[in-house]
Structure formats: C-alpha cells, structure tokens
Nucleic acid binder design. Structure first.
Lengths: 189, 189
DNA sequence: GTCTATAACAAGATAGAC
DNA sequence: GTCTATCTTGTTATAGAC
C-alpha cells in the first residue's frame, strides 16, 4: 500500500471511530505512518482526505449490501439474511455515524455520499418488498417504502442501542424483532 | 435563570447540536453569556457540566416518554401514539446522539445516563407489548423484548435516515412502516 | 515525495485580582 | 461570583529545504 492509500485507509478508520470533528490530520498521519509534508503533498487537507475516505466507505457498504440482497430466496428471506449478517456491532455503522457530525452535513461534498447510500439502500429494499407483496408473500396493506425505511432504521437504531448498552444484545434483539414482525405480517397475507 | 442554570442549558443545546467532542467550554460560555471565571466557579470543567446536562436531558426524555406510554388505549395504540408524537426530527435524539461520541462512552459518568435511558425505555415498551400479547391483541409468537428493541431502534434509526436525507420524510416512513408491521401482526393474532 | 520550521488560532484549564 | 492574565497542548495548515 502506498502512502496516499495508507492515508485514506487511516482516515476511514478514524472517521468511523471518532467522526469528522474528532479526527485530526495529526492523528491520520500518525496512523498512516506518514509525515505532515507527505499528507499535504497528496491531499489538499483534512476535508479532501475525508471526501476520498467517505466515498470509499459508502461504495463498500453498497457493494456488501448488494451481495446479500441479490442472493437467493424469497424477499423476506433475503431481507432476513441481510439483517442477520455478521456485523461489528459496537463499532456502529461507518456511514450512519457521519449523520451525527454537523460539519459533515454542512459540507455537500461530505454529505452527498451519505445521502446516496441510504437512498439506494431504502430503494433496493423497497423493490424487494414490493415483489414480495406482488407474489402474495406479504399482505397488500404493507407499504413497501414505509417498510423498507423501518427495516433500515432498525439496523441504524440497533447500533445506537448497542452502543448505549455497551453490548451487542439490543442490536440482536432489534433484528430478531424486525424479522419477527415481518414473519407475523406474512401470516396475515 | 441564574448563571449556573444558563450554563447547563447552553451545554444541553450544544451537546445536542455538536456532541461532546465538538463542544468547547468557550462556546458554552458564549451561549450562556457567562465569562471564563464564572464557568469554572460553578463547575469543575467541561466534563462536570456535561454530566449535569446529560442527566437532565435523560430525565426529560424519560418524563416525556412516560406521559405518552402511560396514556389510554390498547398496547399497540399507545405505542403508535408514542411513535407518532411530534418530534424535531432533523435535530435528532439528544440522548441517542451521545452514543456516537467515543469520549462519552469512555467516561462512566457520561455514559451511565445514556445506558439507563434506553434500558428503561425498552423495558417499558416490552411490558406494554407483553400485556398486548396476554390479551390476545398480538400473537404469542411475537417476543416482547425483541419487538420493543425493534420499535425503539426504528425511532433512533429514523433520525439517522432523516439527517442523511436532509429531510424528515424517511423518519415518517419508518414510523409508518413500524406501525404497519405491528398492525399486520395484529391481524395474525 | 518527504522532512522540518513556523504560525495563527482554539481547547481546556489555573491563578489571582477585584 | 466574576474578570483578566497566563499556560500548555493540539489543530490545521503554509513555506521552503532536501
């Protein structure tokens, strides 16, 4: 890995752990094993590095989610598989985390990849749920867009509860709860 | 409002907007209209002020949630009322927000009120859901603890989605989605 | 490309005058 | 109780040597 690459990867880790405001160029340089001059040679500054880091993190999330959601099984099965995927729960979501940073929301270059990630994810889930409704797996009364938002929110909120509790348990409960509700709804179809 | 009071209220606002790391003593003093010496006379420092602020914010949340959850109606109705309560969505949850701050999680005095708030909230919702299950409003297959976690997570995650989108719409969708799933589950009881 | 020097400013607090 | 002065360290760069 060359220097520029190490700088981006270090920035990704630090943004995940400490957010944008909590991440200093100094900390990035230390973690990347790069000097001051080196960093400012490859990037214009903290914001420039953060843009590269956030873009890559957002692309990653999208790629991994797609792998799960394009898999085999009925709609509800695929969504359950996505929800149950092994996650480093206590670290939280590297994209969702950024929404708590006012400096990220205030800068369109930093904010846009976050917006696009969740737009895409909710849309993808909604189209799966719409399919399930069309085939009769889910009742007609269930709105695909609303249900998709609830599913994604369950994950994002699960991270919050887990970090509040200092344990992954509330996250696992929330996931089981969401799947339980989807299955109960199936019974009503 | 005396000086100490204004300092605590300013700290509450800033913690909500910018988190612990993003909030400086200087900013607190400015917002409170108090001087450096004044702040350090009433409080030992930033952490001391934050403890007071977080405690009060956590108590507030609990009081307001209890008002909704102890109201009239069936279990599902009360939970729907709680979910639908008018909220300043784009500001996010003043308690949930703190879980993204590693400095808060690392300090037991700052972390404890956050933990207790969500423990209490999930517990309260679980007992309402258990009631609903006992009376046959909800099917026996629905686990109260899991479902409660899913409901709270929907709210917390809804805030995340709304801030990502720069609009309250995803939050409202998630809430409608959760209520829709609860009602569909009711049909399966 | 990487290093060191420098700089202006903010963070977070202490000390002592008033 | 509040004010101003002072202090150390960190932030976020820029400049220029190597």
């Amino acid at each position: 890995m060359d220097t520029a690459e190490r700088l981006v990867e270090s920035t990704r880790e630090l943004l995940w752990e400490r957010g944008y405001t909590g991440t200093s160029p100094r900390a990035i340089q230390e973690r990347a094993g790069a000097g001051q001059g080196s960093m400012y040679h490859h990037f214009r500054g903290k914001q420039d590095l953060a843009v590269a880091a956030i873009r890559r993190t957002a692309d990653d999330l999208r790629t991994r989610a797609a792998a799960e959601l394009d898999g085999p099984g009925t709609g509800v099965e695929r969504i359950a598989a996505y929800l149950r995927r092994d996650r480093d729960v206590l670290r939280g979501c590297p994209v969702g985390r950024l929404t708590q940073d006012p400096d990220v929301l205030a800068d369109p270059a930093l904010h846009a990849p976050v917006t696009e990630t969740f737009d895409w994810l909710c849309g993808r889930l909604a189209s799966i749920l719409a399919e399930s409704r069309a085939t009769g797996e889910l009742p007609a009364a269930l709105d695909p867009d609303d249900t998709a938002a609830a599913v994604v929110a369950t994950l994002q909120g699960g991270y919050v509860l887990a970090r509040a509790a200092g344990s992954r348990e509330p996250f696992d409960r929330a996931v089981r709860g969401a799947i339980g509700l989807l299955n109960a709804a199936k019974g009503a179809a």
